[in-house]
């Protein structure tokens, strides 16, 4: 197995047979939960993430509410069966950190000033994990927020790049993440041209960082098109009256 993998990487093909600048197969769907105000799911490779958005609603406890804007609450949670080894359902240090970085990324897009003293809840549930879940979560959460009718300045879309076997690759998977030298998740607002999340794990030279950043940017823009399609499909569905004859 290891020999096989090494051989593949020499031919610039990755563990799962992708090209260096190729995303895993992706699919975004909006409006999947009936009882949530807004919802979305993303499937990116073997990642499967469901997001539900609730609100805006009155913040509780009241003394914590902000006078000038709403509070965005994010909860990133991995299901116990999402990984190969059972994960305790208790929020881990990593999950608390990811909830924070996702919140910081989304806060810049949502127009929170419209709802003083309120709160908006974003629940992210990772049902199946295979690397780069933080950027996939941001991508899906942004679709869910738009579906909920919450005013936003722009969509937020994330993608990751990394360095595996000395080569810069796009959309790092779980195995590549473990044996790779570096990981660079980014999230952007594509129309406002702003970076809202930038983290780095490992070591990259200045040139490598530039290359990885450009590559992640390209991947993010590809995912942005998918976000657009998922949202526009909701309206396209409402445009036809065909197939209504059974009423």
């Amino acid at each position: 197995m290891v020999k096989e993998r090494r051989k593949m990487s020499e031919d610039f093909t990755r563990v799962d047979g992708r090209k260096p600048d190729q995303l895993r197969p992706y699919r975004i769907r909006a409006g999947i939960l009936r009882n949530a105000d807004g919802s979305a799911e993303i499937k990116l490779g073997k990642n499967w993430i469901v997001v539900g958005v609730y609100g805006p609603k009155e913040h509780f406890p009241k003394f914590e509410a902000l006078q000038d804007r709403a509070i965005l609450f994010c909860r990133y949670h991995m299901a116990p069966y999402s990984t190969t080894e059972r994960k305790s359902p208790k929020p881990s240090r990593r999950e608390i950190e990811l909830s924070k970085v996702i919140r910081s990324a989304l806060e810049q897009a949502v127009i929170l000033e419209r709802f003083p003293e309120m709160s908006i809840d974003v629940y992210i549930e990772v049902l199946q994990a295979e690397g780069s879940t933080r950027v996939a979560s941001i991508t899906a959460a942004s679709v869910a927020l738009a579906e909920a009718g919450i005013p936003m300045r722009d969509m937020v879309v994330g993608c990751s790049a990394g360095k595996v076997n000395g080569r810069i690759v796009l959309d790092v998977g779980e195995e590549e993440d473990k044996e790779g030298e570096a990981d660079l998740p980014i999230a952007i607002m594509p129309n406002l041209k702003r970076v809202v999340l930038l983290q780095m794990d490992g070591k990259l030279t200045h040139e490598e960082f530039k290359e990885a950043f450009e590559m992640a940017l390209k991947g993010a823009l590809e995912l942005y098109e998918e976000q657009k399609r998922a949202l526009k499909d909701l309206i396209e569905k409402m445009k036809t009256i065909e197939g209504e004859s059974n009423e």
Partner: peptide
């Protein structure tokens, strides 16, 4: 008034999904 956001230089963007 709520469905539009000005990003400067006379360019406005929508804040909602819609037609």
């Amino acid at each position: 008034e709520g469905f539009i956001y000005r990003i400067g230089k006379g360019i406005s963007v929508s804040t909602h999904l819609g037609v």
